[in-house]
Amino acid sequence: MIKVEKLTKKFGKNEVLRGISTEIAKGEVVSIIGPSGSGKSTFLRCLNVLETPTTGNIIVENQNLTDSKTPIHKMRQQIGMVFQHFHLFPHLTVLENLTYAPMKAKGVKKQVAVENARELLKKVGLSEKESAYPSSLSGGQKQRVAIARALAMEPELMLFDEPTSALDPEMVKEVLDVMKDLAKSGMTMVVVTHEMGFAREVADRILFLDHGVLLEEGKPAEFFTQPKTARAKEFLDKIL
């Protein structure tokens, strides 16, 4: 579904990604972990071209996103993204946050968009908040709305950029539960996370990044018990 070929990204002289290649299959849940500054978030943001790669190819459903002729905003409609800091639209109600993009970017009829949105709010357990503004929600509620907003576009693939890192500890579970349900439903997911429990339990594959290099990848069971590289071992010793 996604093929990443020799991806590099430089910010000025700072080389953040140094030639990453990997493939993600449909329905796969991939967790990206690694120390801070390893390039995890940049890698994820390259997948929907919020960061333009310096060199390399990102091929989603046979379309090369780094090709300037590819209609990027059409491709992004198939790739949902959830941010660490939610980025809900503060001047719109919860329901409007969900219906805005389907109506304005995809031309979905209002009635259909609203129906869809209500369904999704029910799924994330926030039906009663549909006419609230984001500022009145807790962090966990905001993130659940943000997930529902991304799903409202009916994407093929969901990207999560440290979705629980800005949350109070007691709110982490409600967000992870929504993500687990989503994974079970067969959604293709790429998740940058510090939640090792989630990575271990839900992910099909772990990518370990360090200094912009994909140092190690493998099944969670193997990666967490017998890491192949010294760097991964050291990282796991520090956090587990």
């Binding site: 929907n48 919020l50 905003h73 059409k74 491709m75 992004r76 409609q77 198939q78 790739i79 949902g80 993204m81 941010f83 800091h85 980025h87 809900l88 639209f89 503060p90 001047h91 805005y100 993009a101 304005k104 970017a105 995809k106 907003r149 991304a150 576009m153």
Partner: peptide, 27 residues
């Protein structure tokens, strides 16, 4: 206006002009 607003709108596949009019300018 928070840069995240632009990113959220772009990530949803909203075209630039539409995003300016509906999301950025009102804020």
């Amino acid at each position: 206006v928070d840069k995240g607003q632009t990113e959220a709108a772009l990530a949803l596949g909203v075209p630039y002009r539409q995003m300016m009019i509906d999301i950025i300018l009102p804020q």
